[in-house]
């Protein structure tokens, strides 16, 4: 057993050289980046087409936006702590940090769904104006990605339960999810800057 762990920690320095799996996932993230780029371009063009409907100034508020941003930002560092634990092969800590990250991400999605529900109930749904169509498409695409990330986190927690070590295959999965989660946080920086704050100037 002790032999096993030694081999594993040693093997760590080998997959120091990034796995092709991780590089492949990085390329996927780059294509995802282009999807968000097109949605941002569409929003940039349509951001003033209110068609007599509500403007961003009337719809967005600092409180909810700040809370969503905080949740996502904190979830980034908790995932990072999970990765540090993973590199030390401390499985129970990894599960704990993944759990915390999951709850923070769930809070983010919950707040976003609540915000959307309020807007739609107030007659500011995606069918109201071109501005709102572009807004809902962009922001809900990001929300959908976060939801996929949440499902992924649960999957990895279940796979980690009952194990005592982290084989290279699992390490690759954790690394890919790490890239995915931090990438979504970067997209959110652009969303809260150009979609929300720029509309509230």
């Amino acid at each position: 057993m002790a032999q096993n762990t030694t081999v594993q920690t040693d093997g760590h320095d080998e997959h120091h050289h990034e796995s092709p799996v991780v590089f492949g996932f990085w390329v996927y993230l780059m294509t995802d980046c282009i999807i968000f780029g097109t949605l941002f371009a569409a929003f940039a063009v349509l951001r003033n087409q209110f068609n007599g409907g509500p403007t961003g100034h009337e719809l967005f508020e600092f409180g909810g936006l700040g809370l969503e941003t905080a949740l996502l930002l904190v979830s980034s560092i908790t995932y990072g702590f999970g990765m540090i634990a993973a590199h030390k092969a401390e499985v129970s800590k990894v599960i704990m940090w993944l759990g915390v990250t999951f709850l923070l991400g769930l809070g983010f999605v919950g707040l976003e769904v609540r915000e959307f529900a309020h807007m739609i109930a107030d007659g500011a749904g995606p069918d109201r104006s071109a501005f709102l169509s572009a807004f809902f498409t962009l922001v809900s695409t990001h929300g959908l990605h976060v939801t996929c990330g949440l499902i992924w986190i649960v999957t990895l927690i279940v796979q980690l339960m009952g194990t005592t070590e982290i084989p290279e295959r699992m390490m690759n999965k954790l690394t890919c999810l790490s890239l995915f989660w931090h990438f979504l946080d970067i997209v959110w920086i652009c969303v809260f800057t150009y979609v929300y704050l720029a509309s509230m100037i």
Binding site: T9, D10, H12, S76, G80, F81, I84, H87, K88
Partner: peptide, 23 residues
């Protein structure tokens, strides 16, 4: 063994300190 492991992982995957600074 474990110390060399921790120090090498600190550089390429980030350490608690680097995550806190970034945060």
């Amino acid at each position: 063994m474990s110390t060399s492991h921790t120090s090498s992982s600190g550089e390429s995957h980030g350490s608690v300190a680097s995550y806190v600074i970034g945060f």
